[in-house]
Nucleic acid binder design. Sequence first.
DNA 1: ACAACATGTAACTAAATAAATTACAATTTG
DNA 2: CAAATTGTAATTTATTTAGTTACATGTTGT
Lengths: 151, 151
Amino acid sequence: MKISTRFSDSIHILAFINIYKGKVPLTSNTLASSIETSPVVVRRLMSALSKAGLINTKHGVAEPELAADPNDISLYDIFLAIEGDAPLFTIDERTNPECIVGGNIQETLNEFYNQAETAAKAKLAATSLEDVIETIKVKHAQKKAAQRKKD
Amino acid sequence: MKISTRFSDSIHILAFINIYKGKVPLTSNTLASSIETSPVVVRRLMSALSKAGLINTKHGVAEPELAADPNDISLYDIFLAIEGDAPLFTIDERTNPECIVGGNIQETLNEFYNQAETAAKAKLAATSLEDVIETIKVKHAQKKAAQRKKD
DNA sequence: ACAACATGTAACTAAATAAATTACAATTTG
DNA sequence: CAAATTGTAATTTATTTAGTTACATGTTGT
């Protein structure tokens, strides 16, 4: 199955908390404005991030904080928090067991799909939230510079 | 979005054609029985596989055949035929461009997601239909042997 | 104490996607 | 030309995801 925007929105939330901490109030409303979704969606994602131990939140207080250094949070940690063990590819589970193919395709594809998934997840595990935040900052600086030039 | 069962069903079709060619009539009905879906679903997938040049079919004739040696058809070829350039991960495209994060998250995640996707697709590209067929046959043989033992 | 503001969640609705079905025109073959 | 089959469009159904409404619970400052 395709991985939903929940994953990208969660990365968004964590990056936002890190970049804007102390500069703007970190309410679910503020975050929702940046993501352009509803505050409830944000709170739902933050609840999952909190349960996974990636952020610390306090009921009633708009001061969420990262539970670890951005260098120590990988995209795969975030993926796990939000999608758990959701597979990237879907295997058709309902095939005819009487058939040589239908009776063995699941186990077979499971092996090969796992190889592909593990390769992708390894890349996610090798990318830290810090990498994402730095890239965001670089791209932002580039845009600002380009804008100045035009004036 | 999740990658649908279309991908696994397509691999199923190709493996079935190779394994059962000459042994059973390869109608969309026969294939549908093995996959436990409807003949129309099978024909739709075969239409895509045919357009991608992976199989040859003739209108009105139940004799589809692989257009290449199973060693020369990779799982990524099949993926491309069915899913095209569909991404494994979805990026939320509608975020606030005024925000440092919202304005740069897409480009940023696009980079990192691409790395992960490319790693997964490389594994698919490194796996041939022949690998899948052989694994299916081995698993089938194992099951048959285990069954004999019981008797 | 209480008003204003938040979070945390449950329950529901709406939208998007995929699978299955229905229907039928076009093609092949004996 | 009849029977069997493919190819494809159009529709329905099922599933999943995003968004909304509602509200109980917690916090803070006065």
